[in-house]
């Protein structure tokens, strides 16, 4: 079975490692980017099955990442998950209105993250 690829954008190295570890254990291929600008650049270079982005990042924040990805019609079907410490409704609504597929709250549970990525990518849920 071929692995699905996920782009994980977070300015925290620890978070990138955790997300990478969790998803790679679950059989995903993970590419990471250190901030919004790098994330959008990485996204433009190849096809990803899903994107997970932090919100609070230097250069370009997660909202900007979502906007940039959704600005091209061909990207509208790519699931974009937000992974952040924020959990307010206002925040979710903003992410959703920009085109976020879903959100996860830090600290995340490995199983929850994997499950969510499986759902939004249409992979079989264990």
């Amino acid at each position: 079975m071929t692995a699905l690829s996920v782009l994980a954008i977070d300015d925290s190295r620890t978070m990138r490692m955790m997300v990478t570890a969790a998803l790679e254990n679950a059989g995903f291929d993970v590419v990471t980017a250190d901030d919004g600008v790098q994330g959008v650049e990485a996204f433009g270079q190849r096809r990803f099955d899903a994107v997970i982005t932090d919100i609070n990042m230097p250069n370009l924040d997660g909202f900007g990442v979502i906007e940039a990805i959704r600005s091209a019609p061909k990207n509208r079907r790519v699931p974009v998950l937000v992974l952040t410490t924020e959990s307010s409704d206002e925040f979710r609504n903003r992410a959703r209105s920009l085109g976020a597929t879903g959100w996860l709250v830090k600290p995340f549970e490995e199983a929850g993250l994997v499950n969510t990525v499986r759902i939004v990518t249409g992979q079989d849920v264990a």
């Binding site: 690829s5 190295r13 990138r16 490692m17 990478t20 993970v30 590419v31 190849r46």
Partner: peptide, 19 residues
């Protein structure tokens, strides 16, 4: 339907780099 299992093979992920 059963979930799609014929995704294109993506390039090997580069490991998260430690600084």
């Amino acid at each position: 339907p059963a979930p799609p299992s014929t995704q294109a093979k993506p390039a090997k992920a580069r490991p998260a780099s430690a600084q």
